[in-house]
């Protein structure tokens, strides 16, 4: 693969998903695009680049961007945000007027493990406090990649996947075994909705959120893009809401629209919340 081809394909990924591919990730083009080359009957990545430069290549370009956007997910990943959310859910329930839904956004939700982890916390919280059963909870999972969204909607996971992060008792309580795979219960699926969305484009249509999970997404963006994404999220958050970033991510020095919650790692709240409280 020529350097020009690498730069061109990395440019497509950047433009469509915002993801930054470094030269050390050039191997990903070989491994992830090999099936596509075979299907399109193309001899090399250079031939693919040539085709992408040609007419009517929009669909192919989208496919390339999706294939090169990292999807890695397991249940209750990093643990801590979920411990925090477990405490936050009853507090939000008390703070919200009856009839008002509590809305949670799983941004870049991949195959849905994060969204279903949140759904498990909600179901368990409802079982502990039956007054929460009258409350409507909505988890909106969004991702750039259609294929992962289809899987997320089904809520069916392999044996291998359910072992990543999911305690066996939660598996027994909330999943049903179907031909060796495991499907999230109707109750869990009832909390969730999955839609295709690009974090760099219009996400305002999803409305206001009480809680946002945007973890291990920013690491793929450059600084201005990180700021754009974070500001977009902050604009849609309830003043007393919580934003969870990945354990290795920070909003410090990137935007002043969110601030870290004292004593918590990678938990943020919109800045307007503090201003409203001190007023």
């Amino acid at each position: 693969m020529s350097n020009a081809t690498f730069q061109f394909i990395a440019g497509i990924v950047k433009q469509r998903s915002g993801g930054v591919l470094g030269p050390d990730q050039a191997y990903m083009l070989d491994t992830r695009l090999a099936p596509l080359l075979k299907r399109e009957n193309l001899a090399s990545l250079d031939a693919l680049a040539l085709k992408l430069r040609g007419p009517a290549s929009d669909k192919l370009a989208q496919e390339v961007a999706e294939l090169l956007t990292t999807n890695e997910s397991h249940f209750f990943r990093d643990g801590k945000p979920f411990d925090h959310l477990k405490e936050l859910l009853p507090a939000l329930h008390k703070a919200r007027a009856p009839g008002l839904p509590i809305r949670i956004w799983s941004a870049a939700c991949s195959t849905g493990q994060e969204a279903y982890s949140i759904a498990i916390l909600i179901a368990d919280a409802q079982d502990l406090d039956p007054s929460m059963k009258a409350r409507r909870f909505e988890i909106i999972g969004t991702d750039l990649t259609r294929a992962v969204l289809d899987r997320a909607k089904e809520g069916i996971f392999t044996q291998f996947e359910v072992q990543r992060g999911l305690p066996v008792r939660a598996l027994m309580k909330h999943f049903k075994q179907i031909e060796g795979r495991w499907q999230a219960s109707e109750r869990l699926r009832g909390f969730t909705r999955f839609e295709q969305a690009n974090l760099l484009q219009d996400v305002a249509r999803f409305g206001r959120f009480d809680v946002v999970f945007c973890r291990n997404v920013l690491i793929y963006f450059d600084l201005p893009t990180k700021a754009r994404v974070l500001n977009g999220i902050a604009a849609q958050m309830a003043p007393d809401g919580a934003l969870y970033l990945g354990a290795a991510e920070t909003a410090l020095g990137i935007t002043d629209r969110v601030e870290p919650l004292l004593g918590q790692r990678a938990v943020y709240r919109p800045v307007a919340a503090r201003m409203a409280r001190s007023a």
Partner: peptide, 30 residues
């Protein structure tokens, strides 16, 4: 790995359950 077999193990007093084949990440996670 059948659901009823897993439940049987839990009822007998198991704390967690790893389904073979497993790898280091899964075992450490559990």
């Amino acid at each position: 790995a059948a659901q009823e077999r897993i439940l049987e193990g839990l009822e007998a007093g198991a704390d967690e359950y790893v389904m073979k084949p497993f790898d280091e990440a899964i075992l450490v996670d559990k």
